[in-house]
Write a protein that binds this DNA or RNA. Sequence first.
DNA 1: ATGTCACAAACTTTGTGA
Length: 256
Amino acid sequence: MRLATWNVNSVKARLPRLLEWLGETKPDIVCLQETKCAALAFPAAEVGELGYVTAAHGDGRWNGVAVLSKVGMSDVALGFPGEPAYEGVRESRAVGATCGGLRIWSLYAPNGRTLDSPHYAYKLEWFAAYRAALADELGQPLVACGDFNVAPTDDDVWDPALFAGSTHVTPAERGELAELRALGLHDVVPTPMKGPHPYMYWDYRAGMFHQNKGMRIDLVYASTDVADRVRSAYVDREARKGKGPSDHAPIVVDLI
DNA sequence: ATGTCACAAACTTTGTGA
């Protein structure tokens, strides 16, 4: 069983690359984030030709998440109970589905913007609400993965000093990850394709990818039974190269 | 590091978000 998660930064803009990558990598289950696509506009027919069924949750211009599966799909959940709204709008940041005997969540956590922004408070509330909702789903093989917009440790950013006073690295944000792990979830850390750090996000600007100034903010959190089945996990940095990439690379996890 | 990219409306340029 091969599982993947990828923040594609617009599924429409990335569609040729996504289809090529799916054909080469052949994951059984794929979690996508930042599809930036209304649910009805998702290219389900195109991925369908490769054998995937789709669960898409989308607003249109911003956010948007999806699960693709070749191994069946049931119990699709668009968002989760108690999911908070931002400025009155419940955004498309979580989609759940049961595929191939696994409970899967594709997550796109709020960015937070700045520490004094209402978006930061919303980010922390969103994590707490997700954790509460997930408590009802424990006891089955489960994977919660996607763009968490939090670097778990200082080793997960290229220069921790630059992040002083910024989002993504605060004790409060890292505390939310710790609370998720306290539910019995395990951080499946992928192997980097190059260099010592399993970064999968590099800003488009300033040659950050070339200099490997990246971050590990996309995470795979797996229940114990699933974590015990992990044979390998890697960051596919090849997918970040070339013309028209996302600013994130995919993570690929192989389960026994 | 603030050097790019994607989107949509104000639509051949700008504002927003990341």
